[in-house]
Nucleic acid binder design. Structure first.
Lengths: 237, 237
DNA sequence: GATTGGTCTATTGTCTACAGAAGACAACTC
DNA sequence: GAGTTGTCTTCTGTAGACAATAGACCAATC
């Protein structure tokens, strides 16, 4: 039996920081002070700083030299970028991964979905979030394209950061199970094996309700993003 | 006039390391020992480690906990991933960015192209590399999609890492100017304003000669990558 | 009263030092 | 002679401390 190496403080700090970001404990725009975090996490500054570099690369925090780090505050243009890129990556992944070629990849989806259900029924909000991320990643992973999956994961985390803004509104218990049911349906369509059907299901799947009234909540409107938002809303109607 | 903040040691170390990687001074598979680099770069370990985290996120080096860091060694499957993802991102960028809407974005392309020419005629090999990267990035940047550009840039650097393997073969002076001419032609097509024409030019542009005999130089053949390589070669013939 | 100058504190940037793990090598045992 | 064990060296992981900078606050002057 192979024992696994104990996680480094950098890993632990990265995960802890990410949880603080995705749970909304750290809000977009908040200043991230190193010394405060070292005390809260019980880690010294060097590993914490490395963890922050990782999250900076992921686009979750933004560093200003000699000024400090801030939780990334997303503009409407950012959201436009996230949603459009996400869709394109999804598209590519489905075309490569459906119908499924390797059973092991599919079992990863099922495993994530099962854990998702467990967390949902237990009302474990944070667990559902993590497993939903893992489920989507595993779906992208059906393509066998690691870089695609990583790019998708990064984009997905940024999207969660942005949805955290109005998370409170959706935090009701039933949406946890509802999410799971949508994911289960998606996986069924995937197993059916038609890429086009999966595209359709994904288009329906994307929860765009968080875009309602988003212009008022965020700044940074660009011509591209405004045009996009208009198109999205027309498409819905 | 706004003065810019002096670069941090992390930034400098990141850039220096990247140059060592892309110039081939550090070869894929090479061990990266922290203490050696601190001496060579004149930086202490914490900032160097932060820089290494950044490059790890970019996929240029690979860290094994408690074992050390290594320059990423690419498999055939990795190359398959890089080339296919790159193409898809390019595609998306062209569809969004052509015809060009903002003059300022186009001028960035021209600026990079001019610097490219200067370096090429001076025989500045490293400069050509940097400006070629910047030119391609600026072309992707025509889309006004920062995340797309960043994803592309990361992929592009990995591709350069892999081309570094047989760089010596192409290091003749004429290819420097040749690269520039290809880029100039591409920019002309872009300015003409037809996305389809740009797609065509890009398909012709991609220098696939580095794939010649690549199966023998790298390991890690996957079903996907072998099928892809076959398709690419058939497409050429 | 407003503005400029200085000081002071909080925070970041960097370095040095130590603890612990991994791998190499030698000596010892069978 | 082959295998195993113990030790030693090298390197990474982490901590703590110091230097330098940014921003706030207060005082003094015009």
């Amino acid at each position: 039996m192979r024992i696994e190496a104990p996680p480094s403080m950098v890993q632990l700090a990265t995960e802890a920081l990410m949880r603080m970001l995705l749970s909304g404990r750290l809000q977009p725009g908040d200043r991230v002070v190193e010394n405060q975090l070292t005390q809260q996490l019980g880690v010294s500054r060097p590993p914490l700083r490395e963890a922050m570099r990782v999250l900076e690369q992921q686009g979750l925090i933004t560093q200003q030299p000699r000024k400090g780090a801030f939780v990334t505050r997303l503009t409407l243009h950012d959201i436009y970028e996230i949603v459009t890129l996400r869709r394109e990556l999804e598209r590519m992944a489905v075309d490569l991964g459906v119908p499924v070629r390797e059973e092991s990849r599919l079992s990863r989806c099922h495993a994530a979905l099962d854990r998702h259900e467990t967390c949902a029924r237990a009302g474990d909000w944070m667990g559902v979030l993590e497993q939903a991320v893992e489920f989507h990643s595993s779906v992208i992973g059906l393509s066998g394209h690691r870089r695609l999956e990583e790019a998708y994961r990064s984009i997905q985390l940024q999207m969660l950061l942005c949805m955290g803004m109005n998370r409170q509104a959706r935090a009701s218990g039933e949406s946890l199970v509802g999410d799971w049911e949508r994911h289960r349906r998606l996986l069924e369509v995937i197993e059916a094996g038609s890429p086009e059907a999966v595209h359709l299901e994904l288009a329906r799947h994307g929860d765009m309700t968080f875009l309602d009234g988003i212009e008022d909540r965020v700044g940074g409107h660009s011509p591209e993003s405004l045009a996009w938002l208009r198109r999205v809303r027309e498409g819905e109607a």
